[in-house]
Lab assay of single mutants.
Amino acid sequence: MTYRVRIENADGEVVTIEISADELREKGLTLEELLPPNARIVEVEEVEP
């Protein structure tokens, strides 16, 4: 499974990243732990691999 994640950074700019569930598991991280300081998740969407 892959996630498309929209993130708002500290400057108010919204960027989109895609990350797979396998990648998260391998790194032992959650989506929140990948965020840079002062950023927030705006939207998470599951996409087909």
Rank of each mutant, 00 (worst) to 15 (best):
M1G: 06
M1K: 14
M1Y: 12
M1F: 13
T2Q: 08
Y3T: 01
Y3K: 02
Y3Q: 01
Y3A: 00
R4F: 10
R4M: 05
R6M: 10
R6L: 11
I7T: 03
I7Y: 15
E8T: 07
E8A: 09
E8M: 15
E8G: 02
N9L: 15
N9V: 12
N9D: 08
N9F: 15
A10P: 10
A10R: 08
G12K: 04
G12C: 04
V14A: 05
V14F: 13
T16I: 14
T16D: 06
T16K: 03
T16Q: 06
I17E: 01
I17T: 02
I17K: 02
E18S: 08
E18W: 15
E18N: 09
I19G: 00
I19W: 04
I19N: 00
I19T: 02
S20P: 07
S20E: 05
A21H: 08
A21W: 12
A21M: 09
A21Q: 09
A21I: 09
A21N: 05
D22L: 13
D22Q: 13
D22M: 13
E23Y: 15
E23W: 15
E23N: 05
L24S: 01
L24P: 01
L24T: 01
R25H: 10
E26L: 14
K27A: 09
K27I: 05
K27S: 12
K27E: 03
G28A: 05
G28Q: 07
L29P: 02
L29N: 04
T30H: 05
E32L: 12
E32P: 06
E32Y: 13
E33K: 07
E33Y: 05
E33F: 06
L34W: 15
L34E: 01
L34A: 12
L35E: 00
P36Y: 03
P36R: 03
P36V: 03
P37S: 08
N38K: 05
N38G: 15
A39W: 15
A39V: 14
R40E: 03
R40P: 01
R40L: 08
I41R: 03
V42E: 03
V42S: 02
E43N: 11
E43G: 11
E43L: 14
V44D: 01
V44N: 01
E45Q: 12
E45K: 10
E45L: 14
E46R: 13
E46N: 06
V47N: 04
V47H: 06
V47M: 10
E48F: 15
E48M: 15
E48W: 15
E48Y: 15
P49E: 11
P49T: 13
P49W: 14
